[in-house]
Design a binder for these strands. Structure first.
Lengths: 349, 349
DNA sequence: AAGCGGGATGTAATCGATTCCACGAGTTCC
DNA sequence: GGAACTCGTGGAATCGATTACATCCCGCTT
């Protein structure tokens, strides 16, 4: 592969001049510039990004460590991140932690070794020493979706509290009183926060969230199935389960169906994270939608601000409730069969 | 950040010795080895992958350019690729082409600039000069899922012909005679092949595939919707639509539902690519499942073989039909409600 | 005792870029 | 006319690793 030396030789100039042409440095004669351009085209020369990075100590690359690529929420996030990064002149390397802390560490280490300019993380746990060291060492970092308390890193996330309150209002109105939740890992902020928001919303209606109605999941479909089976085996099963993410909701659907029961008649279902498929499941699933794309873009902007010496801002955006049919019909009104009439907000996807 | 020089200084040896310890070179005394190890630990030293790559001309990185991250098929593929690569000591950089040739070129160029060791591509089109040049220049490359005819690059893919034949047999048995297809872009192999396989299978039953029953899609949901609407507006609409990928099937579902019609009564539906959600849609969707994980792993093995000087093999694995309820019930037998009795193969997911 | 072999180590070249500094030629200004 | 500048250019140092080659030392053979 042609190097800058070959170009210099072909153009009859020094490598310094070639470099100047390539980087748009003003102090090059029009004639030299033309000769270099010609040589570049002729040789099909492309600068070696590895060499350039070594010299400049910049890779123009962002690392993104997400918890699970198979989760549509995270792929949508990843897509938005990549788009915004590209627009700002950065590439993105994605690491999939698969909800496993040791895999997360593997990717963080790998990305750090590659000297990425900054790191976007949605932590699967309370934070390994590795990540904390990186922060302390000054690696530009931003948390997306989940974060680690007590660490001085900007956080870009959605606040679901109001939406959870709307959800509980919706459920209460439909007559449900025994409400259960499939929680995410307590080590994640999204895991514990969603339970607390749910509990607080229930309290407003004088309802309690007994321990038996808190199932411990891990954000994967299988755990949703397992927890739901546990709920159904209870002497007094809940009337509703609220899954803290879309994959556990999928597992819950599996479990209900495997018993020959039906949603919402035998058990109502709601989920955190809205995805396109929820419109077409049987029944369509009521969900809390995050502004995923906006979150991804805001996170990139914050990280790039930090990298380029500006002051990054934490960002919190509201999530919103999207009512469908998985919790029961509010009123048998004359609406299209896809959507349910909603006092709160109507599904539009 | 500490460099090899700092380690050398701290350990009281030369950088050459440090390098030898790091790379497991035998000719280092136990004592020097221990001192270097100590210095490495104390300084928290990590080798700079950028510098190492420049010198060795190896990045231990694979590029993966996929057509669409939002398509669950490709995320599953990406996940398998990353896993296998990691097991073999490589990292993966994913580029999302979003079915747009110019974006694909952007990512190929970017990956090449980064001097990745090899490239895994699922081309969105017939192949840009850039990609063809890269092949000619000797960049190790393997095509996954889709490929470019006439280019000497190993291909790892699924053969859906038998499964399509099984699907048509299934449809014929259910009494359907007017079958339509939502095709992918003709520039992609999967786009044209699936149409041909479908046409050939129809021919075995003496059925024709008229032009009006071939809708031109682009593997995105929106095109599935548009094409399906076109089908429904025909004087003689088809009884079945076969979507060439899962996203177009989602669009087709949208279109049918928007008209207040029902699957399979008003229009039956089948899709290429099976995904977990198809079990829970209303109705569950009959699909052709590819051995996605196996494809991803085989592709990585082929690419790494090529990179490490062995001879890579093309691989073709069979796809299989998974019958659910979206084409109608074969026979009202006493089976669980989730699954339909199938003469061919039963859904197990 | 001289010579040889081999293990441990260091010196320095190298990968492909960027960039500081020096130099020569041409301008401008007094 | 000469000092001071500007502009275009090239030489060479540098980033952080790897590795060929040279050197030194120790022990063994003949």
């Amino acid at each position: 592969m042609a190097s800058i030396k070959d170009v210099a030789a072909a153009a009859g100039v020094s490598v310094a001049t070639v470099s100047r042409v390539l980087n748009g440095h003003p102090s090059v004669s029009a004639e030299a510039r033309a000769r270099v351009r010609g040589a570049v085209a002729e040789l099909g020369y492309r600068p070696n990004a590895v060499a350039r990075s070594l010299r400049t100590d910049q890779t123009h690359t962002l690392g993104l460590v997400i918890s699970d690529v198979l989760n549509p929420y995270f792929t949508e996030l990843a897509r938005a991140v990549e788009e915004e990064a590209r627009a700002l002149g950065y590439s993105v390397i994605i690491g999939n932690a698969d909800e496993r802390p040791e895999l997360q560490d593997h990717h963080v280490r790998n990305l750090l070794d590659r000297r990425i300019d900054g790191l976007l993380v949605s932590p699967t746990d309370g934070g390994s020493p590795l990540m904390l060291d990186a922060v302390r060492a000054g690696t530009p970092m931003v948390f997306v979706d989940r974060w680690i308390p007590g660490v001085d890193v900007p956080v870009v996330r959605a606040d679901g509290r109001q939406a959870v309150r709307d959800l509980v209002a919706h459920l209460y109105r439909l007559g449900h009183r025994r409400l259960a939740i499939i929680a995410g890992p307590a080590a994640t902020t999204t895991g514990s926060e969603r339970v607390e928001a749910f509990r607080a919303a229930l309290a407003e209606y004088g309802l309690l969230l007994p321990d038996a109605y808190i199932g411990q999941g891990d954000f994967q479909a299988e755990s949703g199935r397992r927890v739901t089976e546990g709920f159904l085996d209870l002497p007094e099963p809940p009337e509703v389960v609220f899954a803290a993410d879309n994959l556990m909701a999928l597992g819950a659907l599996d479990a209900v169906r495997a018993r020959g029961l039906r949603v919402p008649d035998d058990l109502a279902l709601a989920a955190f994270d809205d995805i396109p498929w929820f419109v077409h499941t049987d029944p369509p699933v009521t969900a809390i939608a995050q502004p995923t794309g906006e979150l991804g873009r805001a996170a990139v902007r914050a990280l790039v601000d930090r990298i380029e010496g500006r002051t990054p801002q934490s960002v919190t955006l509201p999530a919103r409730l999207v009512v469908r049919r998985s919790c029961g019909e509010a009123a048998p009104a004359a609406t299209p069969p896809t959507q349910s009439p909603s006092p709160v907000q109507r599904s539009t996807s």
